[in-house]
């Protein structure tokens, strides 16, 4: 799917029909990939990298353009079961145009950061910035989900919530790897600033990107460490909750078992003293109650 936008007079206009200079290809088909490779001389391997979620972020210089592969969070859906994945995206910067290749549809050029765009180079940096902001947003969600799962675990006897926490831990590993990969790209962008044509303002913005990305990485690392270090404790809580349930069930079983035994003894079809006593029924009932009382006393005495 192709979306065309136009960058003119420091502003970007979306969904233009003609004279576009920013082309957004979302999950391009075979024909579109062929078109991109033939018409814009995009390297096929780099193009495939932009759509491969496992690809690392990198910068490549081609004769007519600069190719950037960067990492961004994958759109979360309810089927993901608390696994927050990452995906890749490609930016192909030409002298007079920018081609963006995405594996899934995301809202582009939205937010205050895109209010003023001075050049294609500026647009590239702002797209990378929005990706970092997206990572930070997902980290906040991971933290909120983690807190909510902890509340559930405190009273749970199932592994479900524990497995969800494992999913979050796995997601943070993906995030750390992706954010670190983006850091390498941003550093390379700074080193190649003159070659790419970044202005002094752009270079200052790259410094900001490095700081933002580094803070994002530290935040992910902290969440990951907290989750990893508390996982054993949480597993113990679930196990302990289950033990408490078993203990309660055992109390109920024993409390029922002894009076049942008393009653069943007196129900045997044999002669025993006092069988014809007029109050024998209530005597048996009293003995059954006393047995429950004895169990309770032993329970308290042993401090079970």
């Amino acid at each position: 799917m192709l979306q065309v936008a136009r960058l003119v007079d420091n502003a970007i206009t979306r969904n233009v029909d003609a004279d576009g200079n920013v082309f957004v290809y979302v999950n391009p088909g075979e024909a579109e990939r062929r078109y991109l490779a033939d018409n814009y001389k995009l390297d096929e391997h780099t193009l495939n990298s932009a759509l491969d979620p496992d690809e690392q972020a990198r910068l490549e210089f081609e004769p007519e353009h600069v190719a950037m592969i960067f990492k961004r969070p994958h759109n979360y859906s309810s089927e993901d079961e608390f696994v927050f994945r990452v995906t890749s995206a490609g930016l192909f910067l030409f002298q007079d145009k920018l081609i963006i290749v995405l594996s899934e549809s995301v809202p582009m050029f939205e937010g205050k950061v895109f209010a003023r765009i001075s050049s294609f180079q500026d647009l590239v940096l702002k797209i990378i910035y929005s990706s970092i902001a997206h990572f930070v947003g997902h980290l906040k969600v991971i933290n909120a989900v983690s807190e909510s799962l902890e509340d559930q675990i405190n009273t749970s006897m199932q592994n479900k919530y524990l497995l969800n926490l494992f999913s979050l831990e796995k997601s943070l590993v993906y995030f750390l790897n992706a954010i670190n990969s983006n850091a390498k790209l941003i550093e390379r962008l700074k080193l190649s600033a003159a070659k790419i044509g970044f202005s002094q303002d752009n270079i200052e913005f790259i410094d900001d990107l490095l700081i933002e990305n580094s803070q994002c990485y530290e935040q992910a690392a902290i969440y990951s460490n907290i989750l990893a270090s508390m996982m054993d404790a949480r597993a113990s809580i679930v196990s302990n909750n289950l033990n408490w349930l078993m203990k309660t069930l055992t109390i109920i079983t024993i409390a029922i078992m002894l009076p049942t035994f008393v009653v069943s003894v007196f129900s045997m079809n044999v002669e025993f003293p006092g069988r014809t006593h007029p109050h024998m029924f209530w005597i048996v009932m009293a003995m059954a109650c006393v047995s429950v009382f004895i169990v309770r006393m032993v329970w308290l005495w042993k401090r079970w």
């Binding site: 759109n75 979360y76 859906s77 927050f84 549809s105 995301v106 809202p107 947003g137 997902h138 906040k140 969600v141 909120a144």
Partner: peptide, 15 residues
């Protein structure tokens, strides 16, 4: 109305 629906970040914003 947003294109990506009620995904992770909108859910946090609602909460």
């Amino acid at each position: 109305t947003n294109s990506t629906g009620l995904h992770a970040r909108p859910c946090l914003a609602i909460v």
